[in-house]
C-alpha cells in the first residue's frame, strides 16, 4: 500500500500496464521438463534411501533406528557432495528433486556455512549453518510442540 504511493509519478495505471508487458516478455519455466527431472532424481534418492533402510533393518535395527541411520547416511553423502561442489550441479536440473529429500535439507545447511567460512568459525560457519535450516527447525519444532499439546489436552 504505502509502497505503491511512493512509486514516483508513474501512477497505478502505468504500473499495471508495465506488469502486463513483463508478463508477456518473461519466458515460462519448462514445467514438464523440470517436473520430470524432479521426479526422477527425487525418486532415485528415495530408492537409495530404501536400499539403506533394508540394509540397516537386515542388520537388526528397528524401523525407527533404521530410518534415523538412513537419514544420517544420506545427510553425510549430501554434505560431502556439497563440499565437492557437485550437489548444486545436480540441483540445476533436478530442482525440487534435490531440495525436497532430506539431502536438500543437508545441502541448505552446508552451502551457506561453506560459503561464509571466511567470516570465521562462529559468525561464519556456525551461524550460517542455520540460515535456512533454522527456520525449518523453528517451524518443525513449534508444530511438533503444538501437536503434543493438542494430544495432551485431548487425552
Amino acid at each position: 500500500m504505502d509502497n505503491q504511493q511512493h512509486l514516483n509519478q508513474s501512477g497505478q495505471q502505468a504500473i499495471q500496464e508495465y506488469q502486463q508487458m513483463i508478463k508477456q516478455a518473461k519466458p515460462k519455466p519448462p514445467v514438464i521438463k523440470n517436473s520430470f527431472w524432479a521426479f526422477v532424481v527425487g525418486g532415485t534418492i528415495c530408492i537409495i534411501g530404501q536400499g539403506l533402510m533394508n540394509l540397516f533393518t537386515a542388520q537388526g535395527l528397528g524401523s525407527l533406528d533404521a530410518s534415523a541411520a538412513t537419514a544420517t547416511v544420506l545427510v553425510f553423502a549430501s554434505a560431502l557432495l556439497t563440499g565437492l561442489g557437485v550437489y548444486n550441479d545436480l540441483g540445476k536440473f533436478a530442482g525440487a528433486g534435490s531440495i525436497v529429500p532430506i539431502t536438500g535439507f543437508a545441502n541448505a545447511m552446508v552451502a551457506p556455512a561453506l560459503e561464509f567460512k571466511r567470516e570465521g568459525m562462529v559468525f561464519g560457519v556456525a551461524a550460517r549453518l542455520f540460515s535456512i535450516a533454522g527456520p525449518v527447525l523453528v517451524f518443525g519444532f513449534v508444530t511438533s510442540w503444538l501437536i503434543g499439546l493438542v494430544t495432551f489436552i485431548f487425552t
Binding site: 544420517t72 553425510f76 554434505a79 563440499g83 535439507f105 543437508a106 552446508v110 567460512k117 560457519v125
Partner: peptide, 15 residues
C-alpha cells in the same frame, strides 16, 4: 539423530 548428523557433517565439511 538426523538433525545432529546434519550439524556435525555440515560443520566438518565447511571446515
Amino acid at each position: 539423530i538426523g538433525v545432529s548428523a546434519a550439524v556435525v557433517f555440515g560443520y566438518l565439511v565447511a571446515v
